[in-house]
């Protein structure tokens, strides 16, 4: 009976304050979408880190015909130079730092290049001998990149030593920046949402002061009086959180796993099911914020 009664009260409260409730829903929707987007960016960064850090390590590029580096004065790297480098990689001075290494010939490099840019016309303008052969080194500790760089960059036949991780780091730092920006926007929006929820609950409490006054006099418990108001705010916020979750899922499903993954075949994107991990967090966040702000508002504006 009491449950039915509380539900009825919630219903009438939501109806009476419909425009305010809708604005609470929309503001929480937008703010939590930003929170979720920041979360998705972080997940994407982790996904790419996991994927690339295993594969991409330090590459020692050998000279080819067109190289202009100091070590390439004698033209394309010779078989001896290549064997020499391989011996150095296996030497006790370097070996402790690396897990393993692979040699990628010009032919293999060309094959990978073609795979990577299969959709792009650039493939047609690149020939096999334009691409450098390389040693692909898998480091035990990627931070020790300097050691490899110092050892190999001055060797004859080496054009350059590149830490491909650095390229990724730049992408990641850009993505981190974007997620910080998203959190910033989210923080402002959440602040708005809290203020709006507070105002809504205040209005709601004011428009129903007759009922609550009578409830108080006939000895209704604090819970029966306050719960409808709190749930009103929580329901509006949860609806907003659900809308945000659906939006993020649609984004992951149709944009990340649709258009973007067709454009960037080699980039692992987070799947739309992974986004579902974010949804409960958003719902809990929305409900928590609404619950706490309505509780604090009621403490001030609804005497029990």
């Amino acid at each position: 009976m009491r449950l039915l009664f509380i539900l009825g009260e919630i219903g009438s409260g939501l109806r009476r304050n419909l425009s305010m409730v809708i604005s609470v829903v929309l503001v929480t929707f937008v703010s939590l979408t930003f929170v979720g987007a920041a979360g998705m960016l972080q997940m994407q960064i982790n996904q790419m880190k996991g994927f690339w850090y295993d594969k991409v390590q330090v590459a020692v590029f050998l000279c080819n015909d067109g190289s202009t580096a100091v070590g390439c004065a004698s033209g394309s790297a010779t078989k001896e130079q290549q064997a020499n480098l391989q011996a150095m990689l296996e030497s006790p001075a370097v070996k402790p730092y690396i897990n393993d290494f692979q040699f990628e010939s010009q032919a293999e490099a060309y094959k990978h290049f073609k795979e990577q840019f299969s959709n792009s016309p650039i493939v047609d303008s690149v020939s096999e001998d334009q691409l450098p052969a390389s040693f692909r080194i898998n480091m035990k500790n990627p931070e020790k990149y300097e050691i490899i760089s110092e050892t190999f960059s001055s060797q004859p036949g080496v054009e350059t030593v590149s830490d491909q991780r650095q390229v990724l780091e730049r992408i990641f730092s850009w993505m981190n920046g974007a997620s910080v920006a998203a959190i910033g926007v989210a923080a402002v929006m959440i602040f708005c949402a809290v203020l709006l929820i507070t105002t809504t609950i205040r209005l709601s409490a004011f428009s129903r002061r007759r009922e609550t006054g009578i409830m108080r006099l006939v000895g209704a418990s604090k819970m029966v009086i306050q719960l409808p108001f709190i749930l009103e705010g929580v329901i509006a916020a949860v609806v907003g959180a659900l809308l945000a979750s659906v939006t993020l899922w649609l984004m992951a499903h149709f944009w990340l796993n649709g258009d973007l993954s067709r454009q960037f075949l080699n980039t692992p994107f987070i799947s739309s099911t992974q986004v579902l991990v974010i949804a409960p967090v958003l719902v809990a966040l929305g409900a928590g914020l609404a619950g706490i702000s309505s509780l604090l508002t009621l403490r001030r504006y609804l005497k029990v």
């Binding site: 009491r2 009922e211 009578i214 006939v218 000895g219 209704a220 029966v224």
Partner: peptide, 11 residues
């Protein structure tokens, strides 16, 4: 009835 509902009396 309101006075009874809010203190949880049965229908």
């Amino acid at each position: 009835a309101f006075a009874m509902q809010v203190i949880g009396k049965s229908r």
